[in-house]
Write a protein that binds this DNA or RNA. Structure first.
Lengths: 118, 118
DNA sequence: TGGATATCCGCACAGATTTACAGATATCGT
DNA sequence: ACGATATCTGTAAATCTGTGCGGATATCCA
């Protein structure tokens, strides 16, 4: 049934949640960031760039054993999210983690979680 | 173009990435976890449960101002991922964060990132 | 037992995301 | 200038996701 119930079962808890939970706006931003990271290839690219400093699309594809298309699309999204920056030298475009890649995301979260979920 | 290039531009970096980057399997597990969290409503539910200890679907819907259907679906996914546990008392089902909810995800990552992205 | 309550389940539709492909741009070597 | 290289852009098809609805299940109260 889709009816909303009128009477909370635990009014105190409802009130507490109402005040303490981040707004839909704040969580939408965070969700946006997380969904960019929520992809195996994009994660591997982030780890790879963290290790090597910088790589071009072709080398990335080679190292991770995926098509250049796939690597290119992944980089497109990472750049759009401001997580990866580029430097062009001749016809090759080098990619690196953006200087303002969220510190806690990379070091606490990703490096820690990869162990936990293993 | 979909052609793979033969010759890496930086063979050393490619080799380094190859050895240091987590496997597709490991990153797939991590990506799975992150995609469960990559949703505004599910994030708000996690924050709410962290604050209040436990809440039933109806109260959650009330507190977060969403339909019971939406809250129910979000909880379904959180449970399937093992992030939320339930306790049934009569006809009401109380939801709480699973005892093995990844610690770093909740405290370092989510709480920190909500500030950064703000 | 019968009616109301709290929640769950499955299905179908709309919207977002991903992939693969073809064409465009820019640069290099000769 | 010409052909090859490295990458980007745009787009259409395939796939994944979230929502809302109708209906099922289980429990409570009278």
């Amino acid at each position: 049934m889709t009816l909303e119930h009128e009477h909370p079962i635990d009014a105190r808890a409802v009130a507490q949640a109402r005040t303490a939970v981040p707004s839909a706006d704040e969580t939408a931003r965070l969700a946006g960031l997380l969904s960019v990271m929520a992809d195996p290839l994009r994660l591997r690219i982030v780890f790879a760039l963290d290790e090597t400093d910088e790589l071009c699309v072709g080398d990335l594809a080679l190292a991770l054993d995926v098509s250049e298309d796939a690597a290119g699309y992944a980089l497109r999204l990472l750049r759009a999210a401001g997580l990866v920056a580029t430097r062009k030298e001749g016809r090759v475009v080098y990619n690196r983690l953006s200087p303002d890649f969220p510190e806690p995301l990379l070091h606490y979260c990703l490096r820690e979680l990869i162990k936990i979920t293993a």
